[in-house]
Amino acid sequence: MSNTLTAKKESIISYLKETFNDVGNVTLFAFRFFKEVIKPPYEMKEFIKQCYVIGYKSLPLVTITGFIMGLVLTLQSRPTLAKFGAESWLPSMVALSLIREIAPVITALICAGKVSSGIGAELGSMKVTEQIDAMEVSAINPYKYLVVTRILATTLMIPLLVIYADGIGVIGGYIGINIHSDVNFHRYLAQVLESITFLDIFPATIKTFFFGFFIGMIGCYKGFNAANGTESVGKAANSAVVTASLTIFIIDMLAVQITDLFF
């Protein structure tokens, strides 16, 4: 009995040690980004390529998700609002829910699945096949070429994708409303814009930069630190998705608290 307890205690301690070690390494990895990002040479070509891959290539997925978010949210909220005779508030409610919370978090989660795992797998396979070592022995800084460009691209592209998802979600909401009633699009849009203030958009957009930064950073960290062997490529991709998704929720929680404090 006492042996079992000791074994459990040891396994918990070793898990905690590993977790803190990981957190420490991620922090150092992130600090290195800020050190490298300001130093020339700037890998503009690779940065633009990554913006295209991360931003443009994610558009179909974000379009479908954003549209379904708006449509489903409208259809699900309608009966409740109808009970209180507040159906006319539907456009405002849908727009506020989408812009403040649902579109940023869902889009970030979708991108954690698509982008973070993609980066984790790509860099992981480059590590395993010694391509990162090949850059290093050619006196090319692989961190600058592979990591800095990808983190910058996710930090810039995720907010743009979220803004795009906001717009598509609002259109989804319009179609959702028109399934049961006939509302003019101009009137719908006017009500949506009337209900949104700067304070709804600003904090929600700021947090998406953090989502983007961490999605890129975690994907790069997991890939860059993949162990040898093909199995580790899968592990790096999987671990990138799980860690990035969890981080998105933690940032979201912190963002809400900070927004409440200041706005």
Binding site: S125, M126, T129, E130, Q131, A134, E136, V137, S138, A139
Partner: peptide
């Protein structure tokens, strides 16, 4: 890095950028 540019390294699987 100044030394590395004077050294070539052929990896076991060539390590070409995919």
């Amino acid at each position: 890095n100044k030394i590395r540019v004077r050294i070539g390294f052929l990896f076991q699987n060539a390590a070409l950028y995919d």
